[in-house]
Design a protein around this nucleic acid. Structure first.
Lengths: 132, 132
DNA sequence: CAGCATCCACGTTGATACTG
DNA sequence: CAGTATCAACGTGGATGCTG
């Protein structure tokens, strides 16, 4: 972890010169983003939209087990963060297309690094988990 | 996102040749790891242990607002995944030292990439969130 | 010092029914 | 088609008290 990612200098210092006020890391932006991306569906949606734009029902069929409610919530969350763009086409019946924003595209890069780490080490993780 | 991170080929294909069975991505290893690392405290603990080993109470003072329960749970979880090593010293009173395993050290790398992305783009995210 | 056990509040997810 | 609304189940996290 680089030293730059944290807003709390003492968080990465040695040996804890003084306790860190709660408010500063309670909303640590890194954890904050990880919590959004770490939910049940966001990564899946981002990956799909990283390939091409999708319509709502198309996404739901693609993921298949996601409820309508959770797909909506996931998309709204990603949209609120500026990672996903929602475009409504005034057709009849209406169709809505979702795509990654430029910001969302850039997130694919570090997400890939993490994904590659998982692929490279998941055997180790699985093995360790089983032994516990 | 690289194509290799997912165990579900059609997950990243176009345009969804066929629906993907639930079981295959329900336990997508990437989301799986993100969910662990995306919890409230894991990243903080990993970052701290990335600097040097810590004893239990030392960690708790360092994070300060974490409950004993959650620190225990977090450490046990990371230990179960093979990311953290727990070593008990048979002193009186007993002391326990936590440190990153070699595997845990390697996780710091992609975690840094993601952290740097957050630092670089958090202004955009904050701005977008406020407008929603 | 380094925990575990218990109880409780809350957020997240899912199932189902309904709508512009 | 693309949602919203409502209710129920579950998991996560916090507070407190006790222990080897």
């Amino acid at each position: 972890m680089s030293a730059t990612h944290t807003p709390v200098p003492s968080m990465v210092s040695t040996p804890l010169p003084h306790p860190v006020p709660a408010e500063e890391y309670e909303q640590c932006p890194v954890t904050d983003v990880l919590r959004r991306v770490g939910d049940k569906w966001s990564v899946l949606v981002i990956v799909l939209l990283g390939k091409r734009p999708y319509r709502f029902n198309e996404l739901q069929r693609g993921i298949e087990t996601i409820s309508q409610r959770m797909l909506t919530r996931t998309l709204r969350g990603l949209e609120a963060d500026g990672l996903v763009h929602r475009e409504v086409f005034p057709t009849v019946p209406p169709s809505v297309e979702y795509s990654l924003t430029p910001l969302g595209e850039t997130l694919l890069v570090p997400l890939s690094a993490l994904a590659d780490w998982v692929v490279e080490h998941r055997a180790e993780i699985s093995a360790t988990r089983l032994s516990h």
